[in-house]
Design a protein around this nucleic acid. Sequence first.
DNA 1: ATGGTGGGCTACCCA
Length: 271
Amino acid sequence: MRIISWNINSVRLRLASLKKLIETVNPDIICLQETKVINELFPEEAIKDMGYPFLRFKGMKGYNGVAILSRIPLHINDLSRNWCEKEDCRHLALQFTQYNKTFTLHNFYIPAGGDEPDPDINPKFAHKLQFLDEVTHWFENQSDPYSILVGDFNIAPLEHDVWSHKQLLKIVSHTPIECEKLIKWQNTKFVDAMRIIIPPTEKLYTWWSYRNKDWQKSNRGRRLDHLWITPDLKNYLKDISVYKAARNWEQPSDHVPIILDLVDPELKEHC
DNA sequence: ATGGTGGGCTACCCA
């Protein structure tokens, strides 16, 4: 089973890129963030035609928005909710059956938090911190053993998740307070699947700013996108990859897709 | 120290 997470930065503008991604990477489930479209205008039929008949989306005008596109049938329950008393379309959660197990999948778009890393003067940063506190508290009371949590978290928590740990310590996305809160959330029940496959000593980015003239040459990236799994899924983890090629496509998103490959451990042993 | 780009669509928006 292959699951992708991608901040697509407008699903309508990048439908052709989505199609290309599907053709080259062939995922079973795609989690999108920043779809930037209201539900009435979501390109549902076009995506069904790409081979994803089971889909769920939650969008608002111009900002945010999340979607899950699937080849695997989805259970009818909807576990997603609003956070910080805002209906701002940052979370989708659902279940499906695979390997005779019930899987729970969460897709998050965490608030970016603005530029000033002080919650007393920057309400966007205060919102980001409150969002992290709320989700942490909520996940403390969850117990689904086969859970996957993906998305654009807008936080690069480890030293080698950014191009310069020292230069980014006061830059929102890598400040100690948000990194600590992200790790605390993760520790409620998840492990960082990307860092199981790619060791924390290695630089790893999923986002490169539009503002760099040559993103590859300067390579000032950050790992803002994440794939977490519950410990019971560690035996299912086959591979992780970051699809950097998409950053060079025409009209690229500033984020690239990240890929999670899981396999039934019982079948794994026979390989 | 500053500004750089891009998506939304006309907002001293958002990232």
